[in-house]
Deep mutational scan, measured.
Amino acid sequence: NSLAEAKVLANRELDKYGVSDYYKNLINNAKTVEGVKALIDEILA
């Protein structure tokens, strides 16, 4: 998966839960796919 794909999928996942734009910005600023995954795990914990 590319970083861009990971960000799109992460933001879709956040949308399902009604997560605020603050967290979407964190996702969009992530530098690695692993970073995106770690943020998602933390946000949805």
Results as ranks from 00 to 15, higher is better:
residue 1 N to Q: 14
residue 1 N to G: 09
residue 1 N to R: 12
residue 1 N to I: 15
residue 1 N to P: 13
residue 1 N to A: 14
residue 1 N to C: 10
residue 1 N to E: 10
residue 1 N to D: 12
residue 1 N to K: 08
residue 2 S to K: 12
residue 2 S to C: 04
residue 2 S to N: 10
residue 2 S to Q: 10
residue 2 S to V: 10
residue 2 S to L: 13
residue 3 L to A: 01
residue 3 L to G: 00
residue 3 L to R: 00
residue 3 L to H: 00
residue 3 L to Y: 01
residue 3 L to I: 04
residue 3 L to E: 01
residue 3 L to Q: 00
residue 3 L to T: 02
residue 4 A to P: 04
residue 4 A to I: 08
residue 4 A to G: 06
residue 4 A to R: 10
residue 4 A to K: 10
residue 4 A to F: 10
residue 4 A to Y: 11
residue 5 E to Q: 12
residue 5 E to V: 13
residue 5 E to H: 11
residue 5 E to S: 06
residue 5 E to L: 14
residue 5 E to R: 13
residue 5 E to F: 12
residue 5 E to G: 06
residue 5 E to A: 12
residue 5 E to P: 02
residue 5 E to T: 09
residue 6 A to D: 02
residue 6 A to H: 06
residue 6 A to P: 00
residue 6 A to Y: 13
residue 6 A to V: 09
residue 6 A to L: 13
residue 7 K to I: 10
residue 7 K to L: 06
residue 7 K to T: 02
residue 7 K to M: 05
residue 7 K to Q: 06
residue 7 K to A: 02
residue 7 K to D: 01
residue 7 K to F: 02
residue 7 K to N: 01
residue 7 K to E: 01
residue 7 K to C: 03
residue 7 K to V: 04
residue 8 V to T: 10
residue 8 V to H: 11
residue 8 V to F: 13
residue 8 V to Y: 14
residue 8 V to C: 06
residue 8 V to K: 14
residue 8 V to E: 15
residue 8 V to N: 11
residue 8 V to G: 06
residue 9 L to R: 12
residue 9 L to V: 08
residue 9 L to I: 13
residue 9 L to W: 15
residue 9 L to H: 07
residue 9 L to K: 11
residue 9 L to A: 12
residue 9 L to C: 08
residue 10 A to F: 03
residue 10 A to I: 03
residue 10 A to K: 01
residue 10 A to C: 04
residue 10 A to H: 01
residue 10 A to S: 01
residue 10 A to D: 00
residue 10 A to L: 03
residue 10 A to E: 00
residue 11 N to G: 07
residue 11 N to L: 15
residue 11 N to F: 15
residue 11 N to D: 03
residue 11 N to H: 14
residue 11 N to M: 13
residue 11 N to Q: 15
residue 11 N to V: 14
residue 11 N to W: 15
residue 11 N to C: 09
residue 11 N to R: 12
residue 11 N to T: 11
residue 11 N to I: 15
residue 11 N to P: 01
residue 12 R to N: 09
residue 12 R to F: 10
residue 12 R to Y: 11
residue 12 R to M: 15
residue 12 R to D: 04
residue 12 R to H: 06
residue 12 R to A: 14
residue 12 R to C: 02
residue 12 R to K: 12
residue 12 R to G: 05
residue 13 E to F: 15
residue 13 E to L: 15
residue 13 E to K: 11
residue 13 E to A: 11
residue 13 E to S: 07
residue 13 E to R: 10
residue 13 E to C: 15
residue 13 E to G: 03
residue 13 E to Y: 15
residue 13 E to H: 10
residue 13 E to Q: 13
residue 13 E to N: 05
residue 13 E to T: 14
residue 14 L to Q: 01
residue 14 L to P: 00
residue 14 L to V: 05
residue 14 L to E: 00
residue 14 L to A: 15
residue 14 L to S: 05
residue 15 D to P: 02
residue 15 D to T: 12
residue 15 D to Y: 10
residue 15 D to N: 06
residue 15 D to F: 09
residue 15 D to K: 10
residue 15 D to V: 09
residue 16 K to Y: 06
residue 16 K to L: 08
residue 16 K to R: 11
residue 16 K to P: 03
residue 16 K to W: 04
residue 16 K to H: 06
residue 17 Y to Q: 05
residue 17 Y to I: 11
residue 17 Y to E: 03
residue 17 Y to G: 02
residue 17 Y to M: 13
residue 17 Y to S: 04
residue 17 Y to C: 03
residue 17 Y to L: 14
residue 17 Y to V: 08
residue 17 Y to T: 04
residue 18 G to F: 09
residue 18 G to V: 06
residue 18 G to L: 06
residue 18 G to W: 05
residue 18 G to D: 07
residue 18 G to R: 08
residue 18 G to S: 07
residue 19 V to Y: 15
residue 19 V to N: 05
residue 19 V to F: 15
residue 19 V to R: 06
residue 19 V to G: 10
residue 19 V to D: 04
residue 19 V to E: 04
residue 20 S to F: 07
residue 20 S to Q: 07
residue 20 S to V: 04
residue 20 S to K: 05
residue 20 S to R: 07
residue 20 S to I: 05
residue 20 S to M: 08
residue 20 S to E: 06
residue 20 S to H: 07
residue 21 D to A: 15
residue 21 D to G: 10
residue 21 D to R: 13
residue 21 D to I: 11
residue 21 D to Q: 14
residue 21 D to N: 12
residue 21 D to P: 13
residue 21 D to L: 13
residue 21 D to V: 11
residue 21 D to Y: 12
residue 21 D to E: 14
residue 22 Y to G: 04
residue 22 Y to M: 08
residue 22 Y to P: 03
residue 22 Y to R: 07
residue 22 Y to V: 08
residue 22 Y to Q: 07
residue 22 Y to L: 09
residue 22 Y to N: 05
residue 22 Y to W: 11
residue 22 Y to F: 10
residue 22 Y to I: 07
residue 23 Y to E: 03
residue 23 Y to S: 03
residue 23 Y to H: 05
residue 23 Y to W: 14
residue 23 Y to V: 05
residue 23 Y to Q: 04
residue 23 Y to T: 03
residue 23 Y to G: 02
residue 24 K to Q: 05
residue 24 K to S: 04
residue 24 K to Y: 11
residue 24 K to L: 05
residue 24 K to A: 05
residue 24 K to F: 05
residue 24 K to G: 03
residue 24 K to V: 05
residue 24 K to M: 06
residue 24 K to R: 15
residue 25 N to A: 14
residue 25 N to I: 10
residue 25 N to P: 03
residue 25 N to T: 14
residue 25 N to S: 10
residue 25 N to D: 12
residue 25 N to K: 12
residue 25 N to F: 13
residue 25 N to H: 12
residue 25 N to Q: 13
residue 25 N to R: 12
residue 25 N to Y: 13
residue 25 N to W: 14
residue 25 N to G: 09
residue 26 L to A: 07
residue 26 L to I: 08
residue 26 L to Q: 05
residue 26 L to H: 03
residue 26 L to V: 04
residue 26 L to W: 08
residue 26 L to S: 03
residue 26 L to G: 02
residue 26 L to T: 03
residue 26 L to E: 04
residue 26 L to Y: 05
residue 27 I to T: 01
residue 27 I to R: 00
residue 27 I to K: 00
residue 27 I to F: 02
residue 27 I to Q: 00
residue 27 I to G: 00
residue 27 I to D: 00
residue 27 I to V: 08
residue 27 I to H: 00
residue 27 I to S: 00
residue 28 N to W: 15
residue 28 N to V: 06
residue 28 N to Y: 12
residue 28 N to K: 08
residue 28 N to C: 05
residue 28 N to T: 07
residue 28 N to R: 07
residue 28 N to G: 05
residue 28 N to S: 08
residue 29 N to H: 09
residue 29 N to E: 14
residue 29 N to L: 11
residue 29 N to G: 10
residue 29 N to I: 07
residue 29 N to A: 11
residue 29 N to V: 07
residue 29 N to F: 08
residue 29 N to C: 06
residue 30 A to Q: 08
residue 30 A to T: 05
residue 30 A to M: 11
residue 30 A to N: 02
residue 30 A to W: 01
residue 30 A to V: 04
residue 30 A to G: 03
residue 30 A to I: 05
residue 31 K to S: 13
residue 31 K to P: 07
residue 31 K to M: 12
residue 31 K to H: 08
residue 31 K to I: 10
residue 31 K to Y: 07
residue 31 K to N: 11
residue 31 K to D: 11
residue 32 T to Q: 02
residue 32 T to L: 02
residue 32 T to K: 02
residue 32 T to P: 00
residue 32 T to E: 02
residue 32 T to I: 01
residue 32 T to F: 02
residue 32 T to S: 09
residue 32 T to D: 06
residue 32 T to N: 05
residue 33 V to H: 05
residue 33 V to P: 04
residue 33 V to S: 03
residue 33 V to D: 02
residue 33 V to F: 07
residue 33 V to N: 03
residue 33 V to A: 04
residue 33 V to C: 03
residue 33 V to Y: 07
residue 34 E to Y: 07
residue 34 E to K: 05
residue 34 E to M: 09
residue 34 E to H: 06
residue 34 E to P: 04
residue 34 E to R: 07
residue 34 E to T: 06
residue 34 E to N: 05
residue 34 E to L: 08
residue 34 E to C: 07
residue 35 G to F: 10
residue 35 G to K: 13
residue 35 G to N: 11
residue 35 G to I: 11
residue 35 G to V: 13
residue 35 G to D: 15
residue 35 G to W: 08
residue 35 G to H: 14
residue 35 G to T: 13
residue 35 G to A: 15
residue 35 G to R: 13
residue 35 G to E: 15
residue 36 V to H: 00
residue 36 V to M: 03
residue 36 V to D: 00
residue 36 V to T: 02
residue 36 V to W: 01
residue 36 V to S: 00
residue 36 V to A: 01
residue 36 V to Q: 00
residue 36 V to K: 00
residue 36 V to I: 11
residue 37 K to G: 04
residue 37 K to M: 14
residue 37 K to C: 04
residue 37 K to S: 04
residue 37 K to W: 15
residue 37 K to T: 07
residue 37 K to F: 15
residue 37 K to Q: 10
residue 37 K to P: 00
residue 37 K to R: 13
residue 37 K to E: 06
residue 38 A to Q: 11
residue 38 A to K: 12
residue 38 A to P: 00
residue 38 A to T: 09
residue 38 A to F: 12
residue 38 A to W: 14
residue 38 A to G: 05
residue 38 A to E: 05
residue 38 A to C: 09
residue 38 A to V: 08
residue 38 A to I: 10
residue 38 A to Y: 10
residue 38 A to N: 06
residue 38 A to R: 12
residue 39 L to K: 02
residue 39 L to T: 03
residue 39 L to F: 04
residue 39 L to H: 02
residue 39 L to Q: 02
residue 39 L to V: 09
residue 39 L to N: 01
residue 39 L to M: 06
residue 39 L to P: 00
residue 40 I to H: 04
residue 40 I to M: 15
residue 40 I to Q: 06
residue 40 I to N: 01
residue 40 I to L: 15
residue 40 I to T: 07
residue 40 I to D: 00
residue 40 I to W: 05
residue 40 I to Y: 11
residue 40 I to R: 09
residue 40 I to C: 04
residue 40 I to V: 14
residue 41 D to Y: 14
residue 41 D to P: 03
residue 41 D to T: 14
residue 41 D to Q: 14
residue 41 D to A: 14
residue 41 D to W: 14
residue 41 D to G: 08
residue 41 D to K: 15
residue 42 E to Q: 12
residue 42 E to D: 08
residue 42 E to R: 15
residue 42 E to K: 14
residue 42 E to T: 11
residue 42 E to P: 03
residue 42 E to I: 13
residue 42 E to W: 15
residue 42 E to Y: 15
residue 42 E to S: 13
residue 42 E to G: 08
residue 43 I to V: 07
residue 43 I to H: 02
residue 43 I to R: 01
residue 43 I to K: 01
residue 43 I to D: 00
residue 43 I to W: 09
residue 43 I to Y: 09
residue 44 L to A: 05
residue 44 L to T: 06
residue 44 L to D: 02
residue 44 L to S: 04
residue 44 L to V: 09
residue 44 L to K: 08
residue 44 L to E: 03
residue 44 L to H: 07
residue 45 A to R: 14
residue 45 A to L: 13
residue 45 A to N: 12
residue 45 A to I: 08
residue 45 A to K: 14
residue 45 A to G: 12
residue 45 A to S: 10
residue 45 A to D: 06
residue 45 A to E: 07
residue 45 A to P: 05
